[in-house]
């Protein structure tokens, strides 16, 4: 929390994700332009920016749904293993590099129960335990034991997400806030080292936002998973993130602690949309409002 603003040099182990010179072109449109940043292990990194800034595109590049036009995305696991994410197919990024994600528009398996959703997330582990189906079909091997363990893991995350009472209900039957939490719990069931959340607080009421903050903090503390999130809800961003990266028109305009970013004139200009020479006035206005509104 009390880190100096900007990029200070640190030991290699601290960095879990390193994005270098990332560019993504759609036809003639430069959605992301030479974007670089680092996410530290065990921290919550927030990626913010106005609508259309390219935040979700960055996520899609990290999780393999898009292949970047240029740039390098390096993920360094706890064990020291490194993966170049731009070279892996999307499902292997989750399977091998241990990066999980959620979606801006919730993507649950709505016709399956909450528990089943969490079991699908443990597919690769269970697949191996069932001898790629063959042994499991014949009832030999350790599938039964592994399947019991997978239910225990699912139960753990259901407790964490406060969904344990809804375990046997269809996922489509949950309220919006509960579906958001379930999607995070499902991503956690893949046992990721790095979790990407695309607008986890979108559409949540203040009480649900507070529960979400609690969940994210416990994920960072208990599971040791580093989190990166896109968020518009500043109460979530400023409260829980350790590090904020600001994107505008595909370029990074600010990078540092929430305090630093909040006071960065460029960020204020990007959000309020003013000319460069008016920035000074804006800062003065924001500072005078700050005491009352943000407290």
């Amino acid at each position: 929390m009390t880190m100096a603003p900007g990029n200070t040099t640190m030991s290699k182990d601290d960095i879990i994700l390193k994005v270098e010179h990332l560019s993504m072109k759609f036809g003639g449109l430069m959605a992301i332009n030479d974007f670089s940043f680092e996410a530290k292990r065990g921290e919550i990194t927030a990626l913010i920016g106005p609508n259309g800034a390219g935040k979700t595109t960055v996520f899609n590049c990290i999780t393999g749904f898009y292949k970047p036009t240029m740039g390098m995305i390096t993920l360094r696991q706890k064990s020291g293993k490194e993966f170049l994410l731009e070279r892996l197919p999307d499902f292997e990024i989750t399977k091998k590099a241990k990066v999980a994600r959620t979606f801006q528009n919730i993507r649950l398996f709505s016709g399956m129960t909450v528990l089943e959703n969490l079991l699908v997330a443990q597919h690769n582990k269970l697949m191996k335990a069932s001898g790629y189906t063959v042994m499991g079909l014949l009832g030999i091997g350790g599938y039964k034991a592994e399947s019991r363990r997978s239910i225990e893991l699912a139960e753990h995350w259901l407790e964490m997400a406060d969904l344990i009472d809804r375990a046997d209900d269809p996922a489509g039957d949950l309220s919006y806030g509960a579906q958001r939490r379930l999607e995070i719990a499902r991503a956690m069931c893949t046992e990721p080292e790095f979790l990407c959340l695309d607008e986890p607080a979108a559409g949540l009421n203040p009480a649900e936002s507070a529960t979400l903050n609690k969940l994210l903090r416990s994920i960072r503390a208990d599971a040791g998973t580093s989190i990166m999130l896109i968020e518009h809800d500043m109460s979530v961003v400023m409260e829980i993130s350790d590090h904020v990266v600001v994107l505008e028109y595909g370029r990074k305009i600010s990078d540092g602690t929430p305090e630093h970013v909040k006071n960065d004139p460029k960020v204020i200009a990007a959000y309020l949309g003013v000319d460069d020479d008016e920035v000074e006035d804006v800062i003065a206005t924001v500072e005078s409002l700050d005491g009352g509104a943000n407290g």
């Binding site: 499902f91 989750t94 597919h123 690769n124």
Partner: peptide, 9 residues
Amino acid sequence: IACRALGIN
């Protein structure tokens, strides 16, 4: 798409 995000081939 959710399947792919969960590491399912």
